[in-house]
């Protein structure tokens, strides 16, 4: 078993690290590397988007009309505010104000939930109209051939993003749990920071998805 010790500041330092600052730096390094893998994974979808956009610009134009840009914009606002509160919660953990940080984390979590609820309404509306992915596409009044392909892209991109929002929410809940147990201090908060970085990435991806899918001209 990997063993840990407690240093002078009361930080838990695992045996492979010489001190807490090395441990923090390494942890952050790992989170950044993980974010790189996330970017690479999403980039596959963005490349697919770019390719099909160049082949069939018309299905993107027609497809985007089925999306409600107000819903998308609302979700953008929701996620942007959640990013702000996420950043603030890290700030308050650094200042040692754990209760305030907890409030901000809770708000972030709430925003994530709100995003998913809005997304749920959007999805059910589309499914109701028969704008369902692939073989299940039953919408009959499409003007362009291959309209289903647009929705294939739409569901893949927003679906994978949605899974990331859910993952992010779970991570925030985990951080809140640890915060409640008093595991974070102004000198030890790498997990909060890491989850924060992940949450910002999820937000950032949405900021790209929104214009690419909702605001096609």
């Amino acid at each position: 078993m990997s063993t840990a010790r407690i240093d002078e500041q009361g930080n838990k330092v695992y045996m492979q690290y010489t001190d807490a600052s090395q441990q923090d730096a390494t942890g952050k390094h790992g989170v950044w590397l993980f974010l790189v893998t996330e970017v690479m994974m999403f980039s596959g979808l963005f490349v697919a988007y770019a390719i099909f956009k160049s082949i069939y610009p018309e299905i993107f134009y027609e497809g985007h009309k089925f999306l409600d840009w107000r819903m998308g914009a609302l979700n953008t606002v929701v996620l942007l505010s959640s990013s702000l509160t996420m950043a603030l919660s890290i700030y308050y953990v650094q200042k040692g104000k754990n209760a305030v940080a907890m409030g901000h984390l809770a708000f972030t979590l709430l925003c994530g939930a709100a995003f998913m609820v809005i997304k749920y309404f959007e999805y059910t509306h589309k499914i109701h109209e028969g704008l369902t992915p692939g073989h299940f596409f039953t919408y009959a009044n499409g003007e362009t051939a291959n309209l289903a392909l647009y929705f294939g892209i739409y569901y893949c991109m927003t679906g994978l993003h949605g899974i990331h929002v859910l993952t992010g929410m779970a991570l925030i809940a985990w951080v809140m749990y640890r915060l409640k147990k008093g595991e974070f201090s102004p000198t030890q908060y790498t997990a909060v920071e890491g989850v924060g970085l992940f949450w910002h990435l999820v937000d950032l991806i949405w900021i790209y998805l929104f214009p690419l899918l909702y605001l096609v001209s």
């Binding site: 099909f52 299905i59 992915p133 051939a145 291959n146 289903a148 392909l149 294939g152």
Partner: peptide, 14 residues
């Protein structure tokens, strides 16, 4: 599973 069409020529994919 769904036939999203990215890789299927008959659905517009490649």
């Amino acid at each position: 599973a769904l036939g999203i069409g990215f890789f299927d020529a008959s659905l517009g994919g490649d």
